[in-house]
C-alpha cells in the first residue's frame, strides 16, 4: 500500500533577484513498511524534501498524496492535525524537552489529550526499545543513543504511518548508530511503518530497502537493496 505519493515536487526560493531551486521536479513514493534513505550532498534538497513529505512545508509545484488524500493545499492547522495523526519525527539533535522525564517526553505529542493509556503506551514503547530501566530519567541523564531511542519512541507514540528521520545517526558513534538503525529496521518490519531517513551516513544504507540519491534537487541514481 502506498503511504506517500509525491508527484512533480518543485520548491523554489527567491533570494534577492535569484531564484533558487531546492527541488526541481521530484517523484517519490513510499510503501508501508518500507525503509528508505535519502542521500546527497549538502544543499541537494534532502531536508526540503523531508519537510514537504512531513507536511512541515508546502511545495511550490506538484502534489503530495498522503494515504491517497491530496494534502498539498491544506492550511497550517489541518496539516498540523494530520502530522499529529500519521507522521512521526526523529531529529539529529533529538530535541527532547530537558524538563521532562523519558516517559513524559514520549508522551509529549499526545500530552494535551493524554490519558492513562497514553502513559501505558509510552512505557511499552520505551521498554520495547530497551529503556525499561530509564523511564523516569531526565534527558541529561541519558546517553546519546538512549536519547535517540526516546526520540524514536516519541515518534511512534501516535502510531504513525510514516516516520521521518533527519540524520538520525548524525550525532552518534557507529556502534550506537547501528543499534538505532536496527531499531528502525525492526519497526519497519514489525509495525509496517514506512521510514524515511535523510542521511550522510553510508552505514544507513546497509539497513534500508532502497536509497534515493538527490543531486541538485533532482533524483540521481536509485539503488535497491536486495534484502
Amino acid at each position: 500500500m502506498t503511504v506517500i505519493d509525491a508527484q512533480g515536487l518543485v520548491k523554489r526560493y527567491r533570494t534577492g533577484g535569484q531564484t533558487l531551486y531546492a527541488l526541481a521536479g521530484i517523484d517519490f513514493a513510499l510503501e508501508a513498511g518500507e525503509f528508505v534513505s535519502i542521500m546527497g550532498p549538502s544543499g541537494s534538497g534532502k531536508t526540503t524534501l523531508l519537510n514537504i513529505l512531513g507536511l512541515l512545508d508546502t511545495p511550490t509545484e506538484g502534489t503530495v498524496l498522503l494515504e491517497g488524500q491530496d494534502v498539498t493545499g491544506l492550511g497550517d492547522s489541518k496539516r498540523t492535525a494530520l502530522r499529529k495523526r500519521t507522521i512521526g519525527f526523529v531529529f539529529q539533535h533529538f530535541y527532547l524537552l530537558p524538563t521532562l522525564t523519558a516517559v513524559e517526553n514520549v508522551e509529549v505529542p499526545l500530552l494535551l489529550d493524554s490519558g492513562p493509556q497514553v502513559k501505558k503506551r509510552a512505557r511499552t514503547l520505551l521498554e520495547r526499545l530497551g529503556l525499561g530501566e530509564r523511564l523516569d530519567h531526565k534527558p541529561d541523564e541519558l546517553s546519546g543513543g538512549q536519547k535517540q531511542r526516546v526520540a524514536i519512541a516519541r515518534s511512534l507514540i501516535n502510531s504513525p504511518k510514516v516516520v521521518l528521520a533527519d540524520e538520525p545517526t548524525g550525532n552518534l558513534d557507529s556502534e550506537t548508530g547501528r543499534q538505532i538503525l536496527d531499531e528502525f529496521r525492526r519497526i519497519a518490519d514489525e509495525d509496517d511503518v514506512a521510514i524515511v531517513a535523510v542521511t550522510h551516513d553510508d552505514l544507513v544504507n546497509e539497513y534500508v530497502d532502497r536509497t534515493v540519491h538527490l543531486v541538485d534537487g533532482t533524483i540521481g541514481r536509485e539503488r535497491k537493496n536486495g534484502g
Binding site: S77, T80, R83, R85, F89, F91, S155
Partner: peptide, 9 residues
C-alpha cells in the same frame, strides 16, 4: 518540535 509533532498554534 512541538509544532512538528502536531501541536497546533
Amino acid at each position: 518540535v512541538l509544532r512538528a509533532v502536531g501541536y497546533q498554534k
